[in-house]
């Protein structure tokens, strides 16, 4: 990394750093605005008078969300579903991606299975039949209704499979000669070598589970069992298009911009805390180099 010290390169670095930082600021400013709104009084936020600094500073919006009686339950449900869903999902993704990353000649039905999964990505039966399946399996109101229906994520399987493909075949062949079975090869060679990719895919899966709210709305019959994202969706009533004319109380509740803003931070905080931790695995080539030596 310290190999390029030419003057042109130094100038490039300065320009590059400056531009990227500017871009990052461009992403940060709206976030600061939303943070300011979330820390402002209800009246100022609703009247849209908040810029980048809170007006009439208050923590009310956060207290209102966290003070919801189902908040802790929802947090637990969300952690359970994200944890369990990601672990099981990753297991499934890795198990499926490994054989699919083989050459056609060593796995004859590879083509068939690839398309089998692609079809599930492109086509969907729709809400009604999916609901009927979940209902007939007796999963309504259970954590499994939030995990199982979307567990086969073709997009991530294909992505993982392509990352696996970049791993040199020689490693696997030598392991086979040492008598390792496929599971050992996957666990001992593929996963460690593809660590940045595994981290990426786990991140996608976690974010997906953490943010998904519609399934909670449909498959869980009681607010006590909602995951956090579903609960956050409901703390402020969504605009209800079935009522032609609302009333003052409903609108009062609906239009709490500060609360909505605070929910972004409450909802995103756990992911943002995990993210830097995952970034540790984005370490260039160390593992690959180590094995190759």
């Amino acid at each position: 990394m310290t190999r390029y010290k030419s003057p042109q390169h130094r100038i490039f670095c300065y320009v590059n750093n400056t531009l990227l930082v500017l871009l990052a600021v461009l992403c940060l400013v709206p976030m600061i605005h939303i943070l300011a709104v979330s820390l402002s009084s209800k009246a100022a936020a609703n009247a849209n008078l908040v810029g980048l600094w809170p007006v009439d500073f208050t923590l009310d919006s956060y207290l209102k969300t966290i003070g919801n009686r189902n908040f802790v339950d929802a947090m637990i449900t969300s952690f359970l579903r994200t944890g369990l869903g990601t672990v099981l999902g990753m297991l499934l993704v890795c198990l499926a991606a490994y054989p699919l990353s083989k050459e056609n000649k060593s796995f004859r039905q590879r083509g068939f299975y690839s398309w089998f999964f692609i079809i599930t990505m492109v086509f969907s039966g729709g809400l009604i039949p999916s609901y009927i399946v979940v209902q007939k399996l007796g999963l309504i109101n259970s954590l499994w209704a939030l995990i199982l229906p979307g567990i086969v994520n073709t997009w991530l399987i294909i992505l993982m499979m392509n990352f696996f493909k970049t791993i040199p075949k020689e490693l696997e062949e030598s392991a086979h000669m040492d008598g390792a079975d496929p599971f050992t090869v996957l666990g001992r060679i593929y996963l460690p070598l593809a660590l940045p990719s595994v981290a990426t895919i786990a991140l996608f899966m976690m974010v997906g589970h953490w943010n998904s709210w519609f399934d909670g709305l449909i498959y869980i019959n009681d607010a006590k069992g909602y995951p956090l994202s579903t609960l956050l969706q409901t703390i402020i009533v969504q605009q209800d298009f079935t009522k032609i004319t609302p009333d003052a109380a409903t609108m009062e509740n609906l239009s709490q911009r500060a609360v909505k803003a605070s929910q972004i931070f409450i909802g995103a905080a756990p992911i943002l805390l995990v993210y830097p931790f995952l970034q540790r695995y984005f370490v260039k080539g160390i593992v690959i180099g180590a094995v190759k030596e």
Binding site: I128, Y131, Q135, I218, N221, D222, V237, D240, F241
Partner: peptide, 21 residues
């Protein structure tokens, strides 16, 4: 209470799904 929905829209959705299932 048999079940609850957080919004009128969600309630309508749920009733439709129950009709179908």
């Amino acid at each position: 209470v048999a079940w609850t929905a957080p919004t009128g829209e969600a309630l309508t959705n749920k009733l439709r799904l129950m009709l179908a299932s």
